[in-house]
C-alpha cells in the first residue's frame, strides 16, 4: 500500500508537466522576439507542444537520455534593459567623464522545465544527469562567458535631464524536450533550452525628467 502511494506520487510528479522553469538571465530581458511568430521560448510551450514533442521520444531506452530538438539555433533579437546612468536634478549642467560597467553575463545560458535540472559552477551552467553531453550545444556552455566591459564617455547632462543607455542585442535559441530512461523506465522528463548571446548594441539617450 505504501509502495503504491509512493509510486502514485512519482507518477503525479512526472505527469505534471512543466511545473517550474529554472531560468537564466536572458529570461529577465524586457523583450525577446523571434522573426517567425510560430517559434516559442520554452516558457511559452503549451501542454500540447510538450505532448507533441514527447511523442517524438516515446521509444523506451535501456539507459540514458532521449532528446528531441524543436528549435535549433534560431536567431532572436532582444531588448535587454534600460540603464539609468546619470540623473541631473540640479540647476546647472553636469560636465564630466563618466565610467560605467555593463553587467557580466554568460554568452551561453540555460533553462529547463519539468524534472530536468540545471547546475552551476560559478558562472558556468550545465544540465544535470548527463543531458549536457547529449546535446550538441552543451560543450559551448562551459567556455563562452563574456567579460565585464568598462564603458567610458565624456558627456554633458543638462539640468532636469537623465542619461540612459538602452541595450539591444541578438542571440540564438535552441530548445526541445528530453526523457531520461533507467532500465527502460522513464525517470525524468522535461524541456531544455540553450540561449547564446551573440551581440549587444548600446544606444545613448538624454531624456527630460518629468516633474
Amino acid at each position: 500500500m505504501k509502495k503504491t502511494g509512493i509510486l502514485f506520487l512519482v507518477c503525479v510528479y512526472l505527469c505534471a508537466g512543466p511545473v517550474t522553469l529554472m531560468a537564466s538571465e536572458y529570461r529577465t530581458f524586457e523583450e525577446i522576439t523571434f522573426k517567425s511568430s510560430s517559434f516559442d521560448l520554452l516558457e511559452d510551450y503549451s501542454e500540447t507542444d510538450y505532448e507533441l514533442a514527447y511523442e517524438e521520444i516515446d521509444k523506451r531506452k535501456f539507459w540514458g537520455w532521449r532528446t528531441h530538438t524543436v528549435l535549433n539555433n534560431v536567431r532572436v533579437s532582444f531588448k535587454k534593459e534600460t540603464m539609468m546612468i546619470i540623473r541631473n536634478e540640479g540647476t546647472s549642467a553636469i560636465e564630466k567623464d563618466y565610467t560605467f560597467k555593463t553587467k557580466t553575463s554568460n554568452a551561453t545560458q540555460l533553462s529547463a522545465s519539468g524534472s530536468i535540472g540545471i547546475e552551476a559552477k560559478g558562472p558556468i551552467q550545465s544540465f544535470k544527469t548527463g543531458l549536457d553531453s547529449e546535446l550538441e550545444f552543451s560543450a559551448e556552455s562551459s567556455t563562452k562567458t563574456t567579460e565585464e566591459e568598462t564603458i567610458e564617455i565624456a558627456i554633458d547632462v543638462d539640468p532636469m535631464t537623465e542619461l540612459r543607455i538602452e541595450i539591444y542585442g541578438e542571440g540564438k535559441v535552441s530548445n526541445g524536450v528530453g526523457k531520461l530512461y533507467r532500465f527502460f523506465r522513464n525517470t525524468k522528463k522535461g524541456g531544455w533550452e540553450v540561449f547564446t548571446l551573440t551581440s549587444q548594441y548600446y544606444s545613448i539617450e538624454k531624456v527630460m525628467i518629468e516633474q
Binding site: A107, E149, I153, S199, Q200, Y202
Partner: peptide
C-alpha cells in the same frame, strides 16, 4: 563632438 563610446559588443559567442 560626441565622445567616443562603445556602441556594440560583437562576436560574444566567440
Amino acid at each position: 563632438v560626441i565622445d567616443d563610446f562603445t556602441y556594440a559588443d560583437i562576436g560574444l559567442d566567440g
